[in-house]
């Protein structure tokens, strides 16, 4: 498999979305190819950054009350 093809599969590999055979091909290629190994490390780093650092704040505590005040003024579509 070419480096381009492997690099296109790396993010799916990291997400665990590849079949066993495809995952084996990526793993073997990365062990033998320095460029793809670097790409693999970079992708792992990015994936960790996204998992750990994307901000998912909680909504304000009175949000349900505000929503209900709004919906009380409306009626569901028939």
């Amino acid at each position: 498999m070419s480096c381009t093809a492997v690099q296109n599969l790396i993010s799916q590999y990291i997400d665990g979305r590849l079949s066993g055979a495809e995952a084996d091909v990526v793993r073997e290629h990365v062990q033998e190819c320095d460029d793809c190994a670097q790409d693999f490390k970079d992708s792992q780093f990015l994936s960790r950054l996204l998992k750990e650092n994307l901000e998912f704040p909680e909504p304000p505590k009175d949000l349900p009350r505000s929503v209900i005040r709004t919906v009380e003024r409306t009626k569901p579509e028939k």
């Binding site: 909504p59 949000l63 929503v67 709004t70 919906v71 409306t74 569901p76 579509e77």
Partner: peptide
């Protein structure tokens, strides 16, 4: 985000059916 979330739930309420 707070305003939009309120509006989303209003839409959801009106579209439940």
């Amino acid at each position: 985000a707070e305003d939009l979330t309120q509006e989303v739930f209003s839409k959801v309420y009106r579209s439940l059916t």
